[in-house]
Every structure is written in structure tokens, then in C-alpha cells.
Amino acid sequence: MLTVAPPDALELRSNATFEALMWALSRPGDSREMPESGLAAIAETLVDLECTVFADDPALRSEIAATGALVAEDISQVDHVFLSSLEGTEVQLATLRCGSALYPDDGATLVANVRHGVGHRVRLSGPGVDGTLELTLGISPGFWAMRAMLCAYPEGFDMLLVDGRSVIGIPRSTLVEVL
């Protein structure tokens, strides 16, 4: 008789974190709860030795390096970007990988700490949003302008915005209007 191996702590955490990320990207603008706060849990769930990663936080960088992932300094080379803040990063992120119409999956995943519920009001529409959705995010209008320039659907990058344990997903398919 085969007995079920119970999931270990890492698997339980990754499974729950992924579920939060999956629903966050499926329903842009909806906030989901992750089992742990911070970017490290997302890195642990998604990143391994098949990935090339940029992280601005030295502690996170060493954690990511320990997974076997290649840690790069050049944002244009990486598939996952972890930023402790989005402020003043427009110029740096303008080189973010957006894939191509042939291979949209080459577009990067941007994971960043962003305050939910404060800052600028935006209106979201597109797949996963029933009509339109308005919310407030601590992201400057300049960033959204940069994103609109880069995301020529199906090219683009996907965002996971983390505030403590909450995560909000903005995939490239979402139209963001700054109000």
C-alpha cells in the first residue's frame, strides 16, 4: 500500500505562495494573501538554477544565488527582477526583457515591494477584470507610461506587487489608466 508522503514545509509554502500568485495574475488588481511576507517567498517559489535573476537587495541576492540561479547585474539579461522599491527605477527598467511576438514567454517577471492603497489611483481593464477595477497603488504615473511603452501585447512584462503578505498581480494583458 502506497502511503502519501506529507508535503514538507517548503512544498506547503511554495504551493500556497504559487496559488496566491496565480490568482493574483488571473484577477489583476485583486489582493491575495501569501503565507509569508516579502519577496523571498516568491523567489523560493519560482526561481531555481534555470533562471537568471536581478535583485537589488544583497540579502535576497545571496538567497537567490544559493538556489543555483544566475544572479546578473544587467537587467536586460534577466527573466526575474526583484526590487525592494519601484521609485526612480524607470530608466533602469526600460531595458527589461519583454519577449517577442514569437516567444512572449521570454518577457520578464517583475516582483517589487509596492504599497497598496496609497499613492496614485489607476483603473484596470482586460482579461481577469470584470469590466473595470479602480485601485490605488504606490506607483508613479511615469512608471505606467514606461510600461505602456514597453508592453506591446503580446510582448511585455508581468508584475507582482508585494505589500507585506499581500500580493497584487498586473499581467501584461492588463490595460492600466492613470486617473
Binding site: 504559487f18 496565480m22 495574475l25 518577457g107 517577471t109 499581467p171
Partner: peptide, 11 residues
């Protein structure tokens, strides 16, 4: 998981 997230992002 990485591919499933990308699949959601580009329906």
C-alpha cells in the same frame, strides 16, 4: 509554475 504564470499573462 513559471510557465503557468506566463500562460495566464498571455491568454
Amino acid at each position: 509554475r513559471r510557465k503557468m504564470l506566463k500562460a495566464i499573462a498571455v491568454p
